[in-house]
Amino acid sequence: NIFRIAGDLSHLVSIFILINTINVKKSAQGISLKTNILYAVVFVTRYVDLLYSYTSLYNTLMKIFFISSSIYTIVMLKKYSKNIQQYNDDFKIEYLIAPSFVLGLIFNHGFKFSEILWSFSLWLESVSILPQLFMLQKSGESQLLTTHYIFALGLYRALYIPNWIYRYFAEGRFDKLAITTGIIQTLVYSDFFYVYYQKVIKNIGFSLP
């Protein structure tokens, strides 16, 4: 459906913006390495099913793309951050990883290793942007491209919400876990969405309240 495709495309766009920004500026300035490490963890733990199940060619290619691009991003960020100190990238990610794992143990579609990892990845994804937002808030301003990247990334899960509503009516599908974490993820972004709207529409300076 249109929401799902638009969501996946905005996810792809966000990754291209990010990689392009790093390559053009030849710098990791303003980009949180921690957020990108969390995304790599999210993709690797969610897509372990690549090894033993097949849904569609689209699905498989996208999964391979997300895993490989997230690892590539980390490599590039490491390469370009040698000379700069990321003063502001000091969010304690263990405070995101540990609770996500506990929530994965409590809420899952079956007490199997793969299902626990899948649930863990959803919880972790919902809060993975926090180090990046924290960094943005501390530095007070940001390159427009970086904010475009965060916007596209946030839009992707926001678009999954109408996708789930559509699938509920069209297919009778209702994945409580995905919907709950998806709503949390969108709420985490909502303040950012508002600020982005203000900045882009009214062209005012960027700051996170």
Binding site: H11, S56, K63, N163, E171, G172, A178
Partner: peptide, 10 residues
């Protein structure tokens, strides 16, 4: 509702 969740989303 369908029983069993298929992880066909990204």
């Amino acid at each position: 509702l369908k029983g069993g969740i298929i992880h066909d989303e990204l």
